[in-house]
Design a protein around this nucleic acid. Structure first.
Lengths: 251, 251
DNA sequence: TAGTGGTCTAGACCACAGA
DNA sequence: CTGTGGTCTAGACCACTAG
């Protein structure tokens, strides 16, 4: 029973820590101590409400905090769950998603949501060095780890380089297909990353609330002749990924 | 006037978009259109309340959303402001903070907050390959861009390799000092990145609310003989940084 | 259908920034 | 000092998940 000295306004214990942070600490330490394992479900907000005697809004603030830290996540209208550990992504390695997830003893899965031909917006056209409006393959896929959807990717491929791409099974490694069937080999990779919030369309596909924190990874692969092989936007749940780069000075 | 069809619960316009997202869109487009420039201050929450006729909680939800997207930020108890553009950080380049910020036509600044000797916790000791409890230099610095604090860094350096480090002016490039005065040259860099939430202590130093979204960058620099030259944690405001990596396949 | 999170209201007081 | 954001309360109804 945390000192109920007064009953209005913001009384607060002697410690000066807001209630929602205090609750955050309680839950965080429960996770640290293993009382709540990855994947475990937290008590419902209303349960916490009666347990702690604080308003639901305050409860939710603590939960949002933990979500921002990547410790918990929510399944829409189902509940709050403890986040599994993140996978490590290394842009200097050429291994694709399926490969590095398996290497980390996790189970990857890919689902192709759509494959369509779209007119290249000018930003995309620039990258492919083609005229705006040129048709492009646009593949949308959802990828999961241990059954939990962790990213949505939208890949643009030039149909001139990969005609009939749609005929292939795209639920595996796209890089593999481009290499095997079209002789397209990347020799250079450009990667951009930045924290973002997941916008409505992506959020829906991941089954999360719009505005959930995320990480945007933009990959551009170039062939030997400088042609763009793949132009890829990956929208990750922020708690699912960690980036690792190891670099040597070349003498 | 967005259709006041009913007066209780959540009526919502025909579009099915929650009010807080609608407000988010309004503000976001005002920023896009340049009606609000980087650094500009938004109307106060209570002003928006009377302007839009919605409850303050709803207003704040929209603002949090925009903050998570990196479009706006807050100065504690002062107001909400439009975020300046992020700087690009390239871990494959050896240029330090001062250098790459200037290259991007921005004004960098460094402030040393503390320099002390601490006993290495076991995790740190492992990295330096020394016994736990071995004394280490620990430098805490705050770095700013155009006058806005964007990151806190905590650097650990082995005092055996850099005796008397505290005597130097640490408000410039530490890498430079280690190289010039101690002959410590990094030949390998290991970088880890992950989205996080800024914890209380860091948040205070940055003057932001605890839980504000951030990006943690951990750098480990190795000398030719494998010794660890610098072990550095950088806590960035998430809206201030973008990471860029460009990689070639070596034939 | 019961229970969950999602959205929203309309208040209140507190701590601090800034003039 | 005034005004700002920060924290908190105690309700309400909605939209969805899951049994």
């Amino acid at each position: 029973m945390p000192s109920a000295i007064s009953l209005l306004g913001v009384p607060r214990g002697e410690d000066d820590r807001p209630q929602y942070l205090a609750l955050r600490d309680q839950i965080a330490s429960a996770i640290d101590l293993g009382k709540l394992s990855p994947g475990a479900r937290l008590p419902s907000e209303r349960q916490l409400q009666t347990d702690t005697g604080t308003a639901r809004g305050t409860i939710r603030e603590a939960l949002f905090q933990l979500e921002a830290e990547g410790l918990i996540y929510r399944r829409d209208r189902s509940g709050w769950y403890v986040s599994p550990p993140p996978v490590t992504y290394d842009p200097t390695r050429w291994a694709g998603f399926m490969t590095y997830v398996v290497e980390q003893q996790r189970v990857p899965a890919t689902e192709t949501l759509s494959i369509e031909s779209v007119a290249a917006p000018s930003a995309v056209a620039d990258i492919f060095r083609r005229a705006p409006g040129t048709p492009m393959h646009c593949v949308t896929r959802r990828r999961s780890i241990d059954g939990r959807a962790v990213l949505i990717e939208r890949i643009m491929v030039d149909p001139v380089l990969a005609p009939g791409l749609a005929e292939h099974d795209l639920n595996g490694s796209l890089t593999q297909i481009l290499s095997t069937h079209y002789g397209l080999q990347a020799v250079r990779n450009r990667v951009d990353m930045r924290p973002c919030a997941l916008t409505t369309s992506v959020a829906e596909m991941l089954g999360v609330k719009p505005g959930t924190p995320g990480l945007l990874v933009v990959r551009t692969s170039f062939a030997e002749n400088g042609a763009v092989v793949e132009y890829d936007h990956e929208y990750w749940r922020h708690d699912a990924i960690r980036v690792h780069v190891d670099l040597q000075v070349r003498p």
